[in-house]
Simulated assay, not measured.
Amino acid sequence: MRTLVITGGTDGIGRALALHHLAEGDRVVAVGTSQAKGRSLLAEAARLGAGDRCTFVAADLSSTTGTVSLAEQLRRQHPVIDVLVLGAFRYQLTRQETGEGFERTFALYVLSRFLLVEGLRDALEQASRPIVVNLCGTGGIRAGELHWDDLQLREGYRAFAATMQGARANDLLGAAFAAEHPDSPIRYVLYNPMFVDTGLADPFRQPVRGVVKLLAKLFATPVERAIRPITELIGSPPEAVLSAYRVRRRVDVAGPAFDPVDARRLTARLRELTAPSGRMSE
């Protein structure tokens, strides 16, 4: 029986993956913020006859302190973790800061993913075929850049720019992991599911919300179909320490988006920011 930890595990792709793997006989720890959605997942797991193999953990992953505490809790409760799916994300229309002084998209989309992989690496390396699946915007998308002098986007915040900065940062997180842990048994997969019908319209106000919902209905991939390539990767991890996919198309991880110098620069900056003395310093 494998143990999967899924952030964003009560919604969209995360929830669908949780239910799929529960039906396969795996154990799932779903991390989310909504108690109501957590109860809904647990009820569905019970209907599948998998209630004893499903756990919901409420956590605010935009908090670095909370993320570090979550990793410690998960290591204690699950000394062996086979799969870590990083799926927690929210499109932030306006700039908001966390209580620790970080821009919320950066905190949730970049810092939490970095900290969880760091914090759970030992537990993952105890598994026979461990894999990290980072659901992000990888795959040769030209949009987006890291604002090295203003990672918190205090100047001229735009939601799309914040999201695309996060996507580029996650490419570098994968590159940094491969460079720092070349002999690790963990397979780190960056995976872009593209346009999936997962509630993307929710953050918007009308009439934009209605337009996005219509576009999703017409063009988005249903979530049940969107998870199939992900479950295949989980079932048969790639040979390389780092790989990237845009749905089923393999992405070259030797390109400039995965520059090792930038990757080292980013992780050094993240370690600096998340050290107790570094919080709220930028």
Rank of each mutant, 00 (worst) to 15 (best):
G14I: 03
V68A: 13
Q35N: 08
Y91V: 08
R225M: 00
R269D: 11
S281Y: 00
L242R: 14
I234W: 03
P256F: 02
D197H: 10
H147P: 00
E125C: 03
V57H: 08
L116W: 11
T231K: 14
A179E: 14
A71N: 00
L4A: 09
D149S: 12
A107P: 07
C54P: 07
A240F: 04
V189E: 09
D202Q: 11
A71T: 02
A169Q: 09
R129T: 15
K37D: 11
R269F: 06
H20Y: 12
L42F: 01
V223K: 06
F195P: 05
R15L: 14
F102C: 03
C136S: 13
D202S: 12
S128L: 13
P130I: 08
R225Q: 10
V110S: 10
I227R: 10
Q35I: 03
A275E: 05
G255I: 02
L22V: 07
P203D: 02
R104T: 15
R248E: 12
I13M: 13
D252F: 03
L270G: 06
P256R: 09
I81P: 04
L215M: 15
V5P: 14
T163W: 06
L124E: 09
A50R: 15
L173M: 10
E24K: 15
G32N: 13
E44D: 12
G49Q: 05
T221A: 12
D122S: 13
V132K: 07
R76C: 05
E145F: 08
A179Q: 12
R121Y: 00
G32V: 05
L266F: 13
R142Y: 00
V133W: 12
R250A: 15
I131C: 05
A175P: 01
L120G: 05
R121V: 04
I131E: 06
A179M: 13
G12Q: 05
Q35V: 09
G210I: 04
W148S: 06
L124N: 08
A216M: 11
I186M: 02
R225T: 03
F114A: 14
A268H: 14
A244D: 11
V212I: 15
E232S: 09
W148T: 02
A71V: 07
P256D: 10
D202Y: 02
E125S: 09
S184P: 01
L4H: 10
R265E: 06
E180W: 14
M280L: 12
E180I: 00
V132F: 13
G199I: 12
R248G: 01
V110E: 04
R228T: 11
R205M: 00
I234V: 06
L41P: 07
E224N: 08
G99R: 08
R129G: 13
F204R: 01
R249Q: 11
S69F: 00
D171S: 04
R265H: 08
V189T: 10
K37F: 01
Y191I: 01
N192A: 07
L111N: 04
P222R: 14
T163L: 09
I230Y: 08
R76F: 02
D82V: 10
Y91R: 10
T267C: 02
L273D: 01
G166E: 06
R209M: 09
E232T: 10
